[in-house]
Computed example of a mutant assay.
Amino acid sequence: MLWTVIILFSLLCLVPCWIALCKAPTITNTQQSALRVYQSQLNEIKNDLNNGLILEPEYNQAQLEIQRRLLKTDSSIQSSMPQSPLSRGSVIVTGLGLCCIPLAAIGLYLMNGVPSLPAAPLAPRLVEQKEMSQKVAPYIEQLKIRLSSLSMTDPKRIEGYLLLGKIEASRGNLIAASQAWKEALNQQFDPNLAAQIAEVQTQTEGKVSEDSVQLFRKALQAAPKDIPWRELAEQRIAEYERAHR
């Protein structure tokens, strides 16, 4: 059933392309009226010539002027008309090419994806995540105790708090992650880490706090000009300034 829906939606997406290929060119009412007027003028001067109302040089001059206007109108029609429809063979070839797009996409999915793998329900994944978090919790506590016993000048303390923050972030505990990273930042300032902490705090708090904006500003002052997150930090600072005007 799923594959049927996928194929139907793929074909539905190709409908505008088919319409564009098969749609015939059209002429507007104004252009049709202009063509009829010029045609009637040609017939009128032809009748005048036959009835002796005008001489042949006058007829030729009038005919030339009307033909000039007719050609000008025809060129405007050509420029305003859509492209001429493709031949039947071209339409078939183009249509087959369009149909190959969804087929190629499905083929790539069958080759590189895992279509036979059933979708994992959310509830079992949440239970598994909770169990994993409970298993890791004792080790996290041991790591915290170990880090608290290290001196402020010990380089291992920075590495430990960085690791602790990474573990907490992987568990989805961003508040604990930012607290751990702050311990490492207090021991040794790093502009990249400061900007990371400020962004995590902004996401968890739902706004740019004073502490976060101070971290962003310090990070921008210490970071190179071409740092990738400079634009983000400047946007956060601008958000804070707009909110506190």
Rank of each mutant, 00 (worst) to 15 (best):
T4E: 05
T4G: 07
V5E: 03
L8H: 03
S10N: 10
L14Q: 13
A20E: 09
A24Y: 02
T28S: 12
T30P: 00
S33Y: 11
A34E: 13
L35P: 00
V37I: 15
Q39T: 11
K46A: 12
D48R: 05
N51M: 05
G52N: 04
G52H: 05
L53S: 04
L55I: 06
E58G: 12
L64N: 06
E65K: 11
Q67A: 10
L71S: 12
D74H: 13
Q78M: 09
Q78L: 10
P85S: 15
L86T: 05
S87A: 04
G89A: 11
L98P: 01
G107P: 00
Y109L: 03
L126N: 09
E128I: 13
K130P: 04
K130W: 13
E131N: 12
M132R: 14
M132V: 11
Q134P: 00
P138G: 15
L143Y: 00
D154Q: 01
L163C: 00
I167G: 08
L174R: 02
Q179K: 03
F189P: 03
A195P: 01
Q196N: 12
A198T: 03
E199S: 11
Q201S: 07
T204G: 02
E205F: 08
Q214P: 00
Q221M: 10
P224W: 05
K225D: 06
D226N: 13
D226K: 13
E239M: 13
